[in-house]
Computed example of a mutant assay.
Amino acid sequence: MTKVLVVDDEPAISTLLTYNLEQQGIEPLTATDGASALKIIQAEHDQLDCILLDLMLPGMSGLDVLKQMQIQALDTPVIIITAKSQEVDRILGLELGADDYISKPFSPREVVARINAVIRRNQKATQNNSQALFVLDELKINREQHIVTVAEHPLSLTPKEYELLLYFVTNKQQVLSRQQLMEHVWEVQADVDSRMVDIQVSHLRDKLKKYAPERNWIKTVRGFGYQFGME
């Protein structure tokens, strides 16, 4: 059974989410603060399929939870829940490895759809090992072990950065629009904020260039999108 952790300190929202998850055959776990959430994530890491994480939490914030997950290499997919006024926090959350975001107020049906999309993407990334090793000059990707190296230096990528890189390398030298990236990597339609794509691409680009600064791995094609593997 799919298992999802709901982290929110508002009882009404937590109850609404858990009810709708149960109606879809999803087993919900709940936490009302960041510290409790982190303990559950650490204990249930191998069993959790997704985390719904409110950013405004008492004590340890949602952003702090994401930081700790990154430090401890806890790679469970995360959907952050934010108020519309929390744009800066939402961007920081994406930079810290969140897979998606939902703004309050939200539709419970939309939340369930986003969860299912994130879980599908994560399963597809795990199962898609048809090309076990990808090599492009200094870049190597071991798809069976999820290890990425540049000039023999391992890169620490978030799950979303890893999925984005895989999509780039499997479409090497093609110009990919933001809409294509949102539909194939995020599995959402183009009405979602395209800055989410730009943030993740920028983060991935910086990490790739760390050990090969002379290489322009991801080229911006003005007015169209991005192109990978072309100098």
Rank of each mutant, 00 (worst) to 15 (best):
G59Q: 02
L165Y: 03
K39Q: 11
H153P: 07
L29K: 03
E231Y: 06
L139V: 13
Q24R: 12
D193L: 15
H184L: 15
D64L: 09
T32E: 08
S36P: 06
L164Q: 01
Y167H: 07
E138I: 08
D54G: 06
D89I: 11
I80G: 01
P105K: 10
G25C: 14
G229I: 11
M182I: 13
I91L: 11
H146C: 09
T170Q: 15
H153Q: 10
L165P: 01
K160Q: 11
H153G: 07
I13N: 06
I71W: 04
I91G: 03
S14C: 05
R222S: 14
Y101H: 06
I51Y: 02
Q200G: 07
M60C: 08
N142Y: 00
V221I: 15
I80P: 00
V169K: 00
S107M: 14
V192M: 13
K207E: 06
Q23Y: 08
V4A: 02
F134V: 14
A37L: 05
Q180E: 12
D198R: 02
T220C: 12
L139E: 07
V78K: 03
A12V: 05
R121F: 13
D46Q: 06
K209M: 11
G97Y: 13
S61C: 08
Q123Y: 15
Q180L: 11
S130L: 15
E27R: 06
L63P: 00
H203Q: 14
L165H: 01
L74D: 05
I51H: 01
V201T: 00
K160Y: 10
Q179T: 13
L155S: 02
D46L: 09
Q179G: 10
P108D: 13
V135P: 05
K160T: 11
I51K: 02
M60Q: 04
L48P: 01
I80A: 04
P77A: 10
K172D: 11
L48D: 00
E161G: 04
A83F: 05
A83Y: 04
Q145A: 12
D33Q: 07
M230E: 13
S103V: 14
Q47C: 07
F106V: 15
T76Q: 06
D9K: 05
Y19E: 07
L155K: 02
R90A: 12
I13G: 01
R143Y: 04
L165R: 00
A190M: 15
D100Q: 12
S107G: 14
I81R: 04
K84H: 10
K207V: 03
